[in-house]
Structure formats: C-alpha cells, structure tokens
C-alpha cells in the first residue's frame, strides 16, 4: 500500500467519512472511492455500484474479472450509541459499547445523573433528549437506547428516533410498561409499524438481573441487530 493511500484511509476514518479501498490484487494497484464522487477503474465497470453495496452491507467483496482480482473493502463511519438516561445500567453499557467500537453519548437533563463523576471521560449532553437527538442526528450506524424509564424523557426521544435511520432502537421497561408506552405513542400519531422497530423489553433474554448483566444483554442485542439484519 502506498503511504499516500494509507494517509487517505486514516484521514477519512478520523473524519468519519465513508470510503472504500479498492485493491487490484494481481497488480497491487489501489484506488479510493468516496461517496458522491465518481470513480472509474479500467476492467471494473461497476465499481461505484460495488462500492456503495460494500458500504451499505459493511462487507468486503472479492471480484474476479477475467485474470484480474479486485478486493473491495469498505470503511464506514464509527458506530455510535446514544443512551438516554444516565442510570446505573448506562454506567456499564458505556464501557461494553466503547469496547465494541461504539462512540457513546449519554443524554440526561438531570445534572446529578449525567455527571463527570458517574461517567468519567464519556461524552454527555444535558439537554432534553428530543433536542439532543435532533442535534446528534442518528444515522444507519447509530443505536439509540432508552434507559431513563421515565416517559417524560423516553417518549419524546422515541418519537424523534423512530423518524431516523437508527439501526437499533431499544427501550427499558417490562412488557406492561411497553404496552402503555405503545398506547401513548399511538396517541402521538406514531404508526404501529414504526413502533414495531422498538426492542422492548430491551436486551437479549439471558436472564440478566444486575445492571451489568442487563448491559451485556443490551450490547448483545445491538450487535445482533447490526450483523443479522440486511
């Protein structure tokens, strides 16, 4: 790999720009594809289409064209997790999520919850969750996790999140809590199809009891949504 190609890949990753590295294995030639910028490679007609597909599925592809072999490697923006509710479970979830490659932001307007002492070094917002989400703009690489258990915080955040492309939406609460939540959301004009995107009760069913175990079940479900869908 030429150093200037390595430079471009690393800089794009730092800036969170989606890019695709195309390597002609047979000749060691390399190209960078950037979304919305054209790219022509002789011998690989549909390079743009292949690159977009690689980004969308977050999967590499190896393409043989006659004698030539091309390797198509996507570099997507960093995964993000937005946690609403700076509660006890969140203190564990921020750690599991960071280790799994997520850039985490914790949102809670209650200063005593989203404090530096409780969440050292974690990005925090103390605005109202729906305002915070409008600012953070969840995309297809973002998981949004509602943990506040307080309809005043969770509900408006859910309405905003269901309007986004977030790949995962989960909300803490029992089946009963979720049932009343659904009724409130329907009354707000959210469709039942949108509501069906919400993972609730949140987390994989592993019999989790303690806050750290619940955090494990949540990160497991988030990873499952990321990798098993599409």
């Amino acid at each position: 790999m030429k150093k200037n190609i390595l430079d471009q890949v690393v800089i794009a990753k730092r800036k969170n720009d989606p890019i695709v590295l195309i390597t002609k294995i047979t000749t060691e030639e390399q190209w960078i594809y950037k979304a919305n910028e054209g790219l022509n490679i002789r011998g690989l007609e549909n390079v743009e289409e292949l690159s977009e597909a690689a980004l969308r599925t977050d999967r590499c592809a190896r393409i043989q064209v006659n004698e030539d072999i091309f390797f198509i490697q996507p570099f997507n923006p960093t995964l993000r997790m937005i946690i609403i509710g700076a509660v006890h479970v969140a203190q564990f979830l921020v750690q599991f999520a960071s280790l799994s490659g997520f850039a985490v932001t914790v949102v809670d307007p209650r200063g005593a919850f989203a404090s530096e002492v409780r969440f050292p070094g974690v990005a925090k917002l103390t605005s109202w969750p729906d305002d915070a989400l409008r600012e953070l703009k969840p995309d297809f690489r973002t998981a949004v996790v509602m943990l506040s258990h307080d309809p005043k915080l969770d509900d408006p955040a859910l309405v905003t999140t269901l309007n986004s492309e977030a790949f995962y939406v989960g909300a803490l609460g029992s089946k009963k809590t979720h049932h009343s939540r659904c009724e409130r959301l329907l009354a707000e004009g959210v469709t039942s199809e949108e509501i069906s995107r919400i993972h609730a009760p949140i987390g994989l069913d592993i019999g989790a009891r303690s806050p750290s175990e619940i955090a494990v079940s949540i990160i497991g479900e988030v990873v499952e949504s990321l990798r098993r869908s599409k």
Partner: peptide
C-alpha cells in the same frame, strides 16, 4: 477502540 491502520501510519 484500537485502530490498526492508525498504528501502521504512526
């Protein structure tokens, strides 16, 4: 998270 290519560039 560790970034492998950052290390290569470094």
């Amino acid at each position: 998270m560790e970034d492998i290519l950052e290390k290569a560039l470094e």
